[in-house]
């Protein structure tokens, strides 16, 4: 039977992807400025949305094997790519896609090693 605690790394992956999009939307533009970052409500919302992730990770680590948590948490990367395509219109070419797939496999290997 599926361990109910699997929901925590799944929520964390969703939150991580949403945070990336919010922070990017908060500061994107030609000229980066610290003042603009500090005044961006979207950026701060993304920042504070990250706080529950530490709690969810602790709950997951307490109840699940790390070999399950790491691959599930890495769902955040494909989710981020999908969200950034929908929300920011970012497109990736074939070579970049191959590179990203290699990076996802690499992170999973390093996480469970």
């Amino acid at each position: 039977m599926l361990n109910p605690y699997i929901i925590y790394p799944i929520i964390s992956a969703f939150l991580t992807a949403i945070i990336g999009i919010l922070q990017k939307k908060g500061i994107q533009g030609e000229k980066f400025s610290l003042r603009r970052l500090l005044k961006s409500k979207r950026w701060w919302f993304g920042y504070f949305l990250g706080l529950p992730i530490a709690y969810f990770s602790a709950l997951a680590l307490n109840n699940l094997d790390v070999s399950i948590i790491v691959p599930v948490s890495n769902l955040s990367i494909p989710l981020l790519i999908i969200f950034s395509n929908i929300s920011l219109g970012e497109k990736i070419n074939k070579h970049e896609a191959i590179g990203i797939i290699l990076l996802i496999i690499s992170t999973i290997m390093l996480g469970v090693a």
Binding site: G20, Q23, F32, N85, S106, L110, A113
Partner: peptide, 26 residues
Amino acid sequence: FQVAISTEKISLLSPMASTITTAVTV
């Protein structure tokens, strides 16, 4: 990372950043 994502694709930078950090830590 924040400076870089302001002008570059986050769909590329985010996987790069998390994997490099993990690899260097390991």
